[in-house]
Write a protein that binds this DNA or RNA. Sequence first.
DNA 1: ACTTGATTTATACGTACGTCTAATATAATA
DNA 2: TATTATATTAGACGTACGTATAAATCAAGT
Lengths: 246, 246
Amino acid sequence: MKEKSTASSVFLLEGTPPAPARKLQGKPGRPKGGRPDETRDRILNAAESLFADRGYDGASIRDVAAAADVQINAVGYHFGPKEDLFDTVIARRAAVMESLRLDALADARRAAGEAPIPVEILVRAYVRPFIESADHGEPGWRNYAALMGRLANSPLGTEIIARHYDDTARTYLCEFHRTLPGVELEDIVDGFSAMVAAMLGICANTGRRERLANADRARAAKKSIDVLVSFHAAGFNALSHTNWRT
Amino acid sequence: MKEKSTASSVFLLEGTPPAPARKLQGKPGRPKGGRPDETRDRILNAAESLFADRGYDGASIRDVAAAADVQINAVGYHFGPKEDLFDTVIARRAAVMESLRLDALADARRAAGEAPIPVEILVRAYVRPFIESADHGEPGWRNYAALMGRLANSPLGTEIIARHYDDTARTYLCEFHRTLPGVELEDIVDGFSAMVAAMLGICANTGRRERLANADRARAAKKSIDVLVSFHAAGFNALSHTNWRT
DNA sequence: ACTTGATTTATACGTACGTCTAATATAATA
DNA sequence: TATTATATTAGACGTACGTATAAATCAAGT
């Protein structure tokens, strides 16, 4: 296995420009005008899409290799065992997403000054990067969002999510706590979990919402975000107005 | 070597392991005091637990058979192909759950008379049977709840959920619509989806909520239900007070 | 009592899986 | 230029998978 900085891969997330003709040669050995980073990204994109569609166990390394148009062993060569490939798929976009969320939070903090950040702003700052990326980002983001939704309630996913997303979640929870000082942390966490679950459900795009609403197509991302924000901000506010001593 | 050899039979005879506790006899053929229904339930319970832990592809028929203490082929004999086994696992509890939910809705309708049913009552009627079953029902309900959570955002799960749960969902959506007449159906469906996602997230018991709240153990089901109901009822009410003009 | 069907054990088949090794050709480096 | 490192092709290994078949044994109907 080789050790390599992920900087190039993250950079390539912005867009894979040329899409060079593959299968330049059927010969073994390092290809002439080879671009290893492009190969790595092709494998990661294929894995992301297949993991999203079929799950970790349902997507085989052979499937990934075929979709990426590489030999089977190229996958193991670049990413090691299957679990490492999976984690790499999650990690490269988790880093981007968390940075977007922290940026949005920093903006909100700047706008609020010393005052608590309004709940609506907090909710929007957390969910908007995810939903918008899944909607207008490169197609990979849509697969990634579906994959995260599928992972949400699984043991494997929980471990990975903890590793990549808990830090930012805690940062947000502190802000929620500051905005809602009378609410117990456990209740805030329940609301936060509900918010995340709803966000993932929207982006999973299973078609159930459209079916139940008798709609012929998915709503615009902007409307989804607005409804989600309004709904969950009201939920958070209700936590401080409720007396649980029933 | 296609011909069945006698050597293998001899090997198996001398390799007979110590008889397991449950095995009344190691002989082939229908067992003496056999209870086929009990065998079927054992297989379904084992499958339910393993599908919940490892997912559809991650749990093998061999795993299920071993956990149920039956031969591999007993599974296929009783339930057919793997997909049919999976559907049977879902179906048996879905029928019970939907009946509990429709009962709760009927009670609410009776209490409300001709008036709209309050949102809090609707939310509680839908989520309480699920959360309570997962909490103090037979242990299989906990596995079932975890399995449903894992299924929620997956293509396979979507198809199965549609088949078993959409009818009742539509019935509830009608009531929500009656209670919130000024709200578009699509917005109500968004709220309903958020509610279901939060409910499943609670019952999936991944431990993330406890970790983020620095809690050492899960909250009581009653408190979870109360928070969820209060939170989501407020969310639904916000849908009618919001102007989506932008 | 006899026959038929149901349920179990035992075993096998063909395929797909994740991983590994070897060979080879280019890139990078000294 | 010589040498090492890297990226690719090709093939194989051992295991596990879902499923199928045969035989054995008991239950149930006649």
